[in-house]
C-alpha cells in the first residue's frame, strides 16, 4: 500500500504526539462519548439485555483499548503522523458537498459540472479549459446514463417553471 504514496513526511522527528497516542486518544474519546451519549439507555441484565448492555460493554472496551494504545504511544515516542495534505482533503470534500447541495435544486448536469470544476482544484497547476471540457462531457454522459437510461429521479437541468 505504501507504494501509492511516495510523499510521506520524513520520518525523523520522534514525538510523543505519534500515531499511537493520537489513535488511542481517538478511540478513548469515542468510548467516552458513547458512554455519555448512551447513559440513559437501559442496560438490563445478561438474561434480559436492554438496549444499553452491549453498547456499554463495547464503549468500556474502546475506552480501555484506547488508553492502552495511547499509553504505549506516550511511553515510546515515535514518528509523528505525516503532514496532512489539506488541499486535496478540503477540495475533495467540498466537491462532494457542493454536489449534494446542487443535485436536487439545479439538476444533475450542473451539479456534475460544479463538482468536477471544484475537484480540478485539488492539485496545483490549473488547466481551466481542459477541466471545463471534461466536466461538460462527463455531465452529458452521466445524464444519459443515469437519468435517460436508469431513471434516476432527479432533474437533469434546472427547471424555472416552479
Amino acid at each position: 500500500m505504501s507504494l501509492d504514496n511516495p510523499s510521506v513526511a520524513p520520518a525523523t522527528a520522534r514525538s510523543r504526539l505519534n500515531h499511537d497516542t493520537l489513535s488511542g486518544a481517538l478511540c478513548a474519546a469515542v468510548g467516552l462519548l458513547g458512554l455519555w451519549a448512551g447513559r440513559s439507555l437501559e442496560a438490563g441484565t445478561a438474561a434480559e439485555m436492554g438496549p444499553g448492555y452491549v453498547p456499554r460493554l463495547l464503549c468500556l472496551g474502546l475506552l480501555a483499548l484506547g488508553l492502552v494504545i495511547a499509553l504505549t504511544g506516550l511511553r515510546r515516542p515515535g514518528v509523528r503522523p505525516g503532514g496532512i495534505a489539506w488541499r486535496p482533503l478540503l477540495v475533495v470534500t467540498l466537491a462532494v458537498l457542493v454536489f449534494a447541495g446542487l443535485l436536487e435544486r439545479l439538476g444533475l448536469a450542473l451539479a456534475v459540472v460544479a463538482a468536477v470544476v471544484i475537484a480540478g482544484a485539488a492539485t496545483p497547476g490549473a488547466r481551466t479549459r481542459e477541466t471545463v471540457i471534461a466536466a461538460l462531457v462527463l455531465a452529458a454522459a452521466l445524464v444519459l446514463i443515469f437519468i435517460t437510461g436508469l431513471g434516476l429521479p432527479v432533474p437533469a437541468l434546472p427547471r424555472f417553471d416552479r
Binding site: A100, E104, V116, T131
Partner: peptide
C-alpha cells in the same frame, strides 16, 4: 473528478437521500 462524481451519484441513487452523500 469523474470518480468523485460517480461516488456521489451512486450513494444518492441508493435511497435518493442527499444526507447519504
Amino acid at each position: 473528478p469523474a470518480v468523485i462524481v460517480l461516488c456521489g451519484i451512486g450513494v444518492y441513487s441508493l435511497d435518493n437521500r442527499l444526507s447519504d452523500v
